[in-house]
Design a protein around this nucleic acid. Sequence first.
DNA 1: TTGTTTACTAAACAGTGTTCAGTACATTTG
DNA 2: CAAATGTACTGAACACTGTTTAGTAAACAA
Lengths: 206, 206
Amino acid sequence: MGIVERKEREKEEMRKLILEAAQKLFLETGFEKVSIRNIADAIEYSPATIYLYFKDKNELLYAIHNIGFQKMVEEFQPALNLADPFDRLVEMGRRYFRFAFENPELFDLMFIMTAPMDSLACRDDDKWDEGRTAFQLLITCVQDCIDAGVFKYQDAEVAALMIWSAVHGNTALFLRKRLEMFEESRRKQLMEDAFTLFIETIHKGL
Amino acid sequence: MGIVERKEREKEEMRKLILEAAQKLFLETGFEKVSIRNIADAIEYSPATIYLYFKDKNELLYAIHNIGFQKMVEEFQPALNLADPFDRLVEMGRRYFRFAFENPELFDLMFIMTAPMDSLACRDDDKWDEGRTAFQLLITCVQDCIDAGVFKYQDAEVAALMIWSAVHGNTALFLRKRLEMFEESRRKQLMEDAFTLFIETIHKGL
DNA sequence: TTGTTTACTAAACAGTGTTCAGTACATTTG
DNA sequence: CAAATGTACTGAACACTGTTTAGTAAACAA
């Protein structure tokens, strides 16, 4: 009686269909401008159908946020293989930037928008596992730096948070257009300089 | 013939009336949840009236974003009077945090939301003067630190951007609920520790 | 007392997320 | 096989949203 299994498979496929259409539309048009109706049109189903597979729009956004984390972890992989822990750290920073530049909508969803987090708040079972897992990569790297004597920090978690904040802040200010006071031509160079300066500072810093 | 002046005064008062009602509603309910109709109801006018004083919702948000900057600059004033430039820098950082904690909706509008910046994009006359002015305070302070020999940085602007990024990143990650993986009790302490570590790092750093 | 300008609004437009009663088909049961 | 049950889906509605426009009533100028 594989009938119930087939049904489950079909259900899974439908979820995937919705998710892929949604993702495509989002990355094309931006999250703010895509409606449930747009997604429904794209897959040629009624809007109500989507609600049979996702509780609400936030849950759909959360699902795509998850896809984003998968992608990001994949793109971080090469950095994690570098021998020197400090090189590893720097490369992780660079890849954080690059991911944001190349996937601004996805990055927004993962680290800036509130909507997907609102979905998390409704079901108290997990505490943003995706974020936790990704952040753990950074903590590990920082700990390696400490162990290798590059840093003299005591607490790898605190140091990791500081480093994440610095890199994220730069990215977020740019993505949310808070660096508009700099001429467009200088902007990217300025950001890179700020990042480089940060790296130099923590390297010599402590 | 003071009649035209009275009219202008009335127009200005009406703008103020709208702005104050809007601000009150926004700070009570959050920006996402307040509609033009809500504001209109609050001041007992029709929704269409608001469009006689503001081009669209983004412009209204931009006007409130401006009020936020006035408030922020006021709250920064005491920090700017400190004798030691590095103390000044640290105190500015602390006040950035505090402003964000005490006025999360306003902070969001000033540094995270896209809507008010979309308003800016439409009229190319100025390049976010409010942001530029506030950032200039930081640059000046960093330059003072360089002059006093606390920092050996070359470029005050780049250093200021790095510092702003670090402080802002921490704040933004918190406000947008990206530190949910830490238990609520630890969260604030962790943020303070990360800030302190950053301060120590740049102090000894270069 | 005209004519004109100004300030305002009712109503509509085109959209949004979401819900629910109802339908048509697949599956199970007698 | 036919009847009963279960499931997947949808049309249409609800209560909103930002925004525009035609029209009105009052204030002002001639």
